[in-house]
Design a protein around this nucleic acid. Structure first.
Lengths: 248, 248
DNA sequence: CATATTTTTGCAGGAAATTGCAAGAATATG
DNA sequence: CATATTCTTGCAATTTCCTGCAAAAATATG
């Protein structure tokens, strides 16, 4: 049996059963569970399903589209967010980029905090709607369903007119030479404007994103004032510190 | 049974029952109460519910105001929304006002529908994010926490540049002489621009709002092309029909 | 056609996650 | 304040996952 036939079978079964199990598939397809595991691995990589312990579930109809990602490196992200809190003071205007790191940050906002937050992220806006002291401004534009942020010209135009105290940047790759990069052209353009509209830029980055690069450039690495990461070890941080960037 | 299935079950039960108990879930899912407790823990961490002693309650990302209102006249609103569906055709660009009537409408969108929807309403945008064929454009601006819509100058500017086929107007009071009115100045201004930016304006109004007025004027009643209501009886509809408005 | 290289597959082991249980702490209730 | 629930913590049993490895199959190369 061809590997593609197995893929086909798995996806079809997933569509009818809304889940697949290693044990079942191993039996149905007459291959070992390891092979099934590997099959699910590649299907997951192509975004065709979501691997979970014991099998896989479909991508769309489950309510975890955004919340799944929040689980990855959850502790790291909370640690990063906690460090970031100390930069916030009453009365500031903050640009809050989309992404799970920034989402973790707004979840930690103490109730007494008084801020104006500008964001293209719908989950962040929803989270902050319940906060009594935060004025929320959502940038307009077309919604990217996968990342749940607005993007495009309208978003950029709203950000351009802004003067913020701090911009917290989320999911990006950092590289000392390549700079700050992202996986999507439009979002990279939006991030670029965010950087320009803020007096101070703070990147929230899990350590696995440091030293990596993606196709679309956001800005030079020197545009960052501070990088907050989960593991600010000397080895990882030194190259950035040499450029005058505060790494914590 | 996969852990994710349990999550799914819990969230679904929470949605219908408005609460879940450790004891019940343990029995329903055939796992120990400890496992239920741990499941609720992770769901709570992801903001999908709130743990309380003995079980959990919904997190209600929408403040009560919105959730409650959606239930008032629910049947009426669904009836109105069903009538409104016939005005929608593939390829159209639609302005969708905030409010529970319009929210009921987007919930009825058939999956095959291909539209571009421009809206200031966050619940509507979230609902449509799960729709495969709808392009969602959110107008930017300051968020009104009570009604969960964006408002203000930025919102107006985005709408001004638009040319839509249809505008569906939500919560408003209608009066043959006073016209269309609303309870908030900023929102009224936004609605006014919506009316001007669409070729055709359709009001979704429960019958109890007809013949009433509120402080801030949106537009003249003749700006409406069609009024969809739950009870298009002759007595109520006649004055509007005399003005050339289609009432159904 | 023979040989080298890559890909796929199954297996073994140790690592990691999940689950249920028990004992003591915390909290609600009358 | 006494009692009953519920919650937390630690632990052990089980299941599942990952890594490296070797055999078999497929593909490429001379």
């Amino acid at each position: 049996m061809l590997k593609e036939e197995r893929f086909d079978y798995i996806l079809r079964k997933l569509q009818t059963d809304h889940k697949v199990l290693h044990t079942e598939l191993s039996n149905d397809l007459q291959v070992s569970e390891d092979t099934v595991r590997r099959d699910l691995e590649v299907l997951a990589q192509n975004g065709l399903l979501i691997k979970v312990r014991g099998g896989a579930i479909p991508h769309s109809p489950n309510p975890f589209a955004f919340n799944e990602r929040i689980n990855i490196h959850e502790d790291d992200k909370r640690a990063i967010a906690t460090k970031a809190l100390s930069f916030l003071h009453n009365g500031q205007t903050i640009i809050m980029d989309g992404g799970t790191s920034t989402y973790a940050l707004v979840k930690l906002f103490p109730p007494s905090l008084q801020l104006t937050v500008v964001t293209p992220s719908i989950p962040i806006a929803m989270q902050l709607m319940e906060h009594p002291g935060v004025e929320v401004i959502l940038t307009g534009g077309r919604i990217f369903k996968s990342s749940q942020v607005t993007s495009g010209l309208d978003t950029i135009r709203m950000l351009e007119k802004l003067r913020a105290d701090i911009c917290f940047m989320g999911v990006c790759s950092l590289h000392t030479e390549v700079g700050v990069t992202g996986p999507d052209m439009d979002e990279a353009a939006v991030k670029n404007v965010m950087v320009q509209s803020a007096n101070k830029v703070i990147a929230l980055v899990t350590s696995d994103k440091m030293g990596t690069a993606e196709p679309y450039k956001v800005c030079n690495i020197t545009a960052m004032d501070t990088i907050i990461t989960d593991e600010a070890g000397v080895a990882l941080a030194a190259p950035y510190r040499q450029l005058g960037i505060n790494v914590i």
